[in-house]
């Protein structure tokens, strides 16, 4: 069975693209985006910016495909970026310099916490991985996602989650290795992954 990208979300400073269509949100105000979703999830406001971005992107993806999927534990989350959570590290470091280290900020200085937030939100208990790569690497993503399918997984939520200075650079997508389809269907190939990244 060939695997298909069934929904994707690209987040940059100049906007958000969901399955080829721009969303009417300004990424400089994540609160506004959250409000646009009409959900009640007060924990959102406690998250660091990485988790908030990933949370919002995945909410958008998930509303597109939720009716089709009942996957519970068979999903793998594969996330990466180039500098772990340096923004949150610096935030915690500032509280440390003031001699008032913030416990909640400290917890978010682990990059996998953003996947933990998704697990809590959606009750996804399956496997997850957070890698540090020098840059977006379609070959790695392609190979590692296939490895997950080789060991029996049916779905993967894949993410490149980068914040460099003020620059946002996120790509989130769901891949199905089953008969389940989504609003879009893009062949899971290195070429297509690079195309999505250059959107």
């Amino acid at each position: 069975m060939t695997s298909q990208i069934i929904s994707y979300c690209r987040i940059k400073n100049d906007g958000v693209i969901l399955n080829d269509r721009p969303l009417p949100y300004d990424t400089s105000s994540l609160k506004q985006w959250y409000q646009g979703l009409s959900i009640h999830y007060p924990k959102f406001h406690k998250m660091d910016r990485y988790s908030q971005l990933v949370f919002l992107g995945v909410e958008e993806l998930w509303t597109q495909i939720r009716p089709a999927i009942d996957f519970e534990a068979s999903i793998s989350m594969i996330f990466a970026n180039s500098n772990s959570c340096i923004h949150t590290d610096m935030g915690f470091y500032k509280t440390l310099e003031k001699n008032r280290p913030s416990p909640s900020l400290f917890v978010y200085t682990l990059p996998n916490i953003m996947m933990g937030e998704l697990s809590i939100r959606h009750q996804w208990k399956g496997e997850q991985f957070f890698f540090i790569l020098p840059k977006f690497d379609a070959i790695f993503y392609y190979n590692y996602t296939n490895l997950q399918f080789e060991i029996g997984k049916k779905f993967a939520l894949v993410g490149w989650v980068e914040q460099t200075g003020q620059q946002l650079d996120l790509l989130l997508y769901f891949i199905s290795n089953s008969s389940v389809t989504g609003p879009i269907s893009i062949a899971h190939t290195i070429e297509e992954l690079n195309k999505l990244y250059t959107i």
């Binding site: 772990s84 682990l110 957070f130």
Partner: peptide, 26 residues
Amino acid sequence: ASLSHTAQKLQRKYNLYQQPLVLSQA
């Protein structure tokens, strides 16, 4: 001092063919 720089330095120092893969999961 970032983890990706550590990986690159290790690759250069030991002449590794593949770039080392960094996993950071608490």
